[in-house]
Every structure is written in structure tokens, then in C-alpha cells.
């Protein structure tokens, strides 16, 4: 009965979708706003990667909201899992020497790769979120390969907070000192396609990278701890 109603509902939605999608032909979208970003993004923001200039400059406020959502999830996950948590130590079977050494060898390399991704966010595909996810994956590797090792909760919390505060601080600096707008790109734009270009964008992406990395690592840490 339930599935019949659901299917009926989905058919109605599908019919509606087909009606609308005929007005949105695939492969030739209406890009008035997008075309302007492509045409003028380089002069206005100094970033070679237009997606980055949209994410951090044109729609930077969304990104502020986005890191907030992740922060809410990290904090909320801690709140949900922390109540009445039983602190119990369990015997953990340690990994074999090959696995252990391999993980320890790979860990700094993955961190380095993650950092590369978020530092070059304004030049190449990638950015703070992608780099942060890679950084967090390094921690997952350590959790799997070198059992019993944990990130320090205080450290990850501090990094998380500082990352967010730097983002807000730069935004407020833009409001107070720079172009008189919140989050305006008030630093010199530099030469296109070099590492030191695009004003505040690399700084913001580094802050986001650290924040996302520590948050995701914290989320995984909480889930592992609770399921063990």
C-alpha cells in the first residue's frame, strides 16, 4: 500500500519534471551570470580557477554558511554521541609491521598532497574542501592502520576554531579596512596564474582546508570511538 502511494507520488513528480526540463535543454544553459564570471572573473578576483572565484568571492557568503554547516555537524555529532558515553578501554589487536610502517610512511605524504590541493585552489581544480577531505583521509588511514592512535581533541578543536575565526576576521577586515564590503577582496590581486595572486582567496582556502580537515577527522574520530 505504502509503495503504491509512493510510486503514484513519484510519477506525479516525474511528470512535472518532464514538463519543466523541456524548457531547460541539456547542453545549452542560460548563463547570463555565469558568462560574466568567466569574462570578468580574472580581472575582478585574480583567480585563474573561475569556480574558486565564484566560491570564495562572488558567492563567498555561501561558503561561510557552508563551513558553518560542517561546523554544526561536527559539534552536533559530538553532542549526540557524547551524552552518557561509556569510557571503556578495549584491547585492540595491533596491526602487522608492514601495515603499520606503510601507514606511517604514507601519512605525511597524504597530508602534503592535501595541503598542495588547498594552497593551489585558485590555480588548479581543487580547493579548501577537497584538500581538507584529503587531509582527513590521512587520519582515516592512521585509524585503520595504526590502531589506538588518536588525534588530540584539544588540538583539532583549536584548529577548527581558528580556521573559522580567520575566515570571519578576513571578512570583517574587508568590511572595516578594505573595500567597505564584507568579504571584499582587498589585498593586491597579483599576477594571474602565480601562487601569490588572487588577494584573499588563498588565505581563505588555507583556513578552510585546515578547518575542514580537522572537522572531518574529528567526525571520524567520534564515530570510531563510539562504534568500538
Amino acid at each position: 500500500m505504502r509503495s503504491i502511494i509512493s510510486i503514484f507520488l513519484l510519477v506525479v513528480i516525474a511528470w512535472g519534471m518532464i514538463t519543466v526540463l523541456q524548457e531547460i535543454p541539456f547542453g545549452s544553459s542560460e548563463t547570463r551570470v555565469g558568462q560574466r564570471y568567466i569574462d570578468q572573473g580574472r580581472e575582478e578576483t585574480g583567480a585563474a580557477n573561475i569556480v574558486t572565484s565564484v566560491v570564495l568571492n562572488y558567492r563567498g557568503f555561501d561558503t561561510l554558511g557552508e563551513i558553518t554547516v560542517l561546523f554544526v555537524a561536527a559539534i552536533g555529532l559530538g553532542a549526540v554521541l557524547s551524552t552518557n558515553r561509556k569510557k571503556k578501554k578495549r584491547e585492540i589487536e595491533s596491526a602487522s609491521l608492514v601495515l603499520y610502517t606503510g601507514c606511517r610512511f604514507l601519512f605525511p605524504l597524504i597530508l602534503l598532497f592535501g595541503a598542495y590541493i588547498f594552497i593551489h585552489g585558485h590555480l588548479t581544480p581543487g580547493g579548501g574542501f577537497q584538500g581538507g577531505a584529503i587531509v582527513a583521509s590521512a587520519f582515516v588511514l592512521v585509524y585503520l592502520g595504526c590502531r589506538g592512535r588518536r588525534i588530540s581533541e584539544t588540538g583539532s578543536k583549536a584548529v577548527e576554531s581558528l580556521g573559522g575565526l580567520i575566515f570571519i576576521g578576513i571578512g570583517l577586515a574587508g568590511l572595516a579596512v578594505g573595500g567597505r564590503y564584507f568579504l571584499s577582496n582587498f589585498l593586491p590581486k597579483g599576477e594571474l596564474n602565480t601562487l601569490f595572486s588572487a588577494g584573499v582567496i588563498p588565505i581563505l582556502y588555507i583556513a578552510i582546508g585546515f578547518k575542514v580537515g580537522s572537522e572531518l577527522a574529528g567526525v571520524i574520530d567520534h564515530l570510531i570511538e563510539d562504534s568500538e
Partner: peptide, 12 residues
């Protein structure tokens, strides 16, 4: 922005 900033700062 101000509430957000304080929310980020509360863990510290």
C-alpha cells in the same frame, strides 16, 4: 557575522 564569529570562538 558576529554570532558566527563567537560560535567559532566558543571552543577556544
Amino acid at each position: 557575522v558576529v554570532p558566527l564569529g563567537f560560535a567559532f570562538g566558543i571552543p577556544l
